[in-house]
Amino acid sequence: MSKKDKEPLFSAKNRKLLLGPLSASNPVVVQILGICSALAVTAKLQPAFVMAISVTVVTAFSNLIMSLLRNSIPSRIRIIVQLVVIAFLVILVDQVLKAYVYDVSKQLSVFVGLIITNCIIMGRVEAFALGNKPWPAFLDGVGNGAGYGLILIIVAIFRELLGAGTLWGYQVIPASFYDAGYSNNGLMLLPPMALIIVGIIIWVHRSWKKDLQEK
């Protein structure tokens, strides 16, 4: 394993693997992966946060396991082995959520299962874990999971704050605002607004990082 090489655990290269996906190669807004199920859980901050953690755990460990197995997998059944490993991790996560954060797991419902088909996970395993040592693969998984989670949490903050006036279930917009005629924007809680917010995040992000703009 990676213990043999002299490279320190957090060398510049490894730090890039971990931090790159937060912005420059963010899986959601740059690579456009894994939007699938995730946005449906962003109406409130708490489920979005739990979802982000779950996805990070699954990406990190599926990368780690696949990287450990990479030299023994028969290439003909590669995809199915990947799916089994990912599904296995997702089931574990689902069982743990059901046991320890029951209320949130109820809100997430089928979306936990959909982590399996989250393109980020398959994408990272295929593109990175199969060709790299376990430790970098693990960091890459954590980084991508976190980059994904970051977007999820930003979207959830906007939607919960503007749509319900709360954050994490606590009222943050003071009652005096409502007395002065402010009212919550129910539209923010409906599914389509998640897409529009992501669109706006992409807009802001690409105005800042001009090299990412599409021709």
Partner: peptide
């Protein structure tokens, strides 16, 4: 320009 491609598709 920043909205081209993915951005506008989302919106």
């Amino acid at each position: 320009a920043p909205l081209k491609g993915a951005g506008i598709t989302f919106i």
